[in-house]
Simulated scan of single mutants.
Amino acid sequence: MSLAISDGLRDRLSSWLDHERALKSASEHTITAYARDVSGWLSFLAGHEGGTFGVAQIARLRITDMRAWMAHERSRGVAPRSLARSLSAVKTFTRWLAERDGFDPTAILSTRSPKFQKKLPRPLSPDAARDMLSTVEMQHDEPWIAARDVAVVTLLYGCGLRISEALSLTGNALPLGEVIRIVGKGDKERIVPVLPAARRAVAEYVRLCPYEMTPDAPLFRGKRGGALNPRLIAKVTEAARMQLGLPASVTPHAMRHSFATHLLNAGGDLRAIQELLGHASLSTTQAYTAVDGARLLEVYDAAHPRAKKA
C-alpha cells in the first residue's frame, strides 16, 4: 500500500481490516472492497493536506475536507452508488479508529451520502420461476451436473437461500430433513423449512454425484470435485433465462426475491418471511418483495389492527 500516510495509521488500517475479517465475519470480497475504498480516501487526503498523513490529521478533518473528497470522486466519474459504498466504509473505519484513539469523528460521520435511486429487485412470476427450474436442467449434458444445478436453484427459490448459503452446505446436512439450519450474514443462524421438491432435487443430485459426500466436504461440487464456484450457477441461470426470453434481471438472487414475493402474495406473514430470509430489518424484506398495493394494505391491516380504526 504505497500511501503517504504514517506507519501508525497504516498499522491501524491493517488492524481494522483484521477486526472486520475476524470479529465481523466479513468476506474476503468485502475486505478487499473496504481496503480499496479507505485507501483511496486516505490517498486523496494525503495529497489534499500535503505531507505525511496520520491519525492526528484525521481527527482534525472538517466537513469541507470530506466534501472535497466526494467532489474529487465525482469528477473521476464515480457513480453515486459506488461513492455511497466508499463513504460507508470510511465511516465504519473512522468510528472504529475514533474509539481507539479518542477523538471526535462527528465531521466525518455526519457527511451525507450521495442520493441515488435504489434498484428494487425484480422477482419472477410463479410460472417463470417454474420454467426456470425446468430449463436449468437442460443446460448441461452431464446428468450429475444438470442435477446439481437444479438442486442449487431449487434451494434458492424453494427455501429463499442466498447463493453463498446454499454453496456453504456440507455433507453434514444430508439427508435433508423438513428443516435446515442456515448460518447467514454476521454468523446469524436461522431455521428454514425445506420443501419436498427441494429435498427431492438434492437427493437426486447426491445419487448421481460421483464424489463421496463426507460430512465436512462441500455438498455442491465442481466438475473436478472441489467446491462449486457461484459463477457457474450465475452462468447456467443466464443461459436458462436467455433460452426463455426472460430479462437480464433474472439472476440467482432473483430466485430468492421470487421466493419472498410469492410467499407474501400467498398470504405469508411479512415478519415470518423476514425470519426465513435472515433479514435484520423488516424494511429490507419489504424492498425484496414486489406485491400490488392492495395486498400490501391487507398485510398492513393484519399486522396493525388499529389502522382500521383510524
Results as ranks from 00 to 15, higher is better:
Ser6Lys: 14
Asp7Phe: 06
Gly8Pro: 11
Asp11Ile: 03
Asp18Cys: 00
Asp18Ala: 01
His19Lys: 12
Leu23Val: 15
Lys24Leu: 10
Glu28Thr: 07
Thr30His: 05
Thr32Glu: 11
Ala35Thr: 11
Gly40Phe: 12
Gly40Thr: 07
Trp41Leu: 05
Ser43Ala: 05
Ala46Gly: 12
Thr52Tyr: 14
Phe53Gln: 12
Ile63Ser: 14
Met70Val: 00
Ala71Ser: 13
His72Ser: 11
Arg74Phe: 14
Ser75His: 08
Pro80Phe: 10
Arg81Asp: 12
Arg81Leu: 13
Thr92Leu: 15
Phe93Tyr: 13
Arg100His: 15
Pro105Arg: 10
Ala107Ser: 09
Ala107Cys: 08
Ser110Asn: 12
Thr111Lys: 00
Gln117Pro: 02
Pro121Thr: 12
Pro126Asn: 01
Asp127Ile: 04
Ala128Phe: 02
Ala128Ser: 07
Ala129Tyr: 03
Arg130Thr: 14
Asp131Trp: 13
Ser134Leu: 12
Thr135Met: 15
Thr135Val: 14
Val136Gln: 06
Val136Thr: 13
Met138Asp: 14
His140Gly: 01
Asp141Glu: 14
Pro143Glu: 11
Pro143Gly: 07
Arg148Phe: 01
Val150Ser: 08
Thr154Asp: 13
Cys159Gly: 09
Leu161Lys: 01
Ser164Thr: 09
Ser164Leu: 04
Leu174Pro: 02
Glu178Val: 02
Ile180Gln: 00
Gly184Ile: 02
Val194Asp: 04
Val194Glu: 00
Leu195Ala: 13
Ala197Cys: 10
Ala198Pro: 05
Arg200Met: 03
Ala201Glu: 07
Tyr205Lys: 05
Tyr205Val: 04
Val206Asn: 07
Thr214Cys: 10
Thr214Ser: 14
Ala217Ile: 09
Leu219Gln: 08
Phe220Tyr: 06
Arg221Gln: 05
Arg221Ile: 05
Gly222Ile: 04
Gly222Leu: 03
Gly225Leu: 05
Gly225Lys: 11
Ile233Thr: 06
Ile233Ala: 09
Thr237Cys: 09
Thr237Arg: 02
Glu238Val: 04
Ala240Met: 04
Ala240Trp: 02
Ala248His: 07
Val250His: 00
Val250Ala: 01
His253Pro: 00
Ala254Met: 01
Ala254Asn: 02
Arg256Phe: 07
Arg256His: 09
Phe259Ile: 07
Leu263Gln: 11
Leu263Ser: 07
Leu264Gln: 11
Asn265Tyr: 03
Gly267Cys: 06
Asp269Gln: 07
Asp269Arg: 00
Arg271Tyr: 09
Ile273His: 08
Glu275Tyr: 04
Ala280Asn: 11
Ser283Val: 06
Gln286Cys: 02
Tyr288His: 05
Tyr288Leu: 02
Gly293Met: 13
Arg295Gln: 15
Arg295Ala: 07
Val299Ile: 15
Val299Glu: 14
Tyr300Met: 07
Ala303Tyr: 08
Pro305Met: 03
Lys308Leu: 14
Ala310Asp: 09
Ala310Ile: 09
Ala310Gly: 13
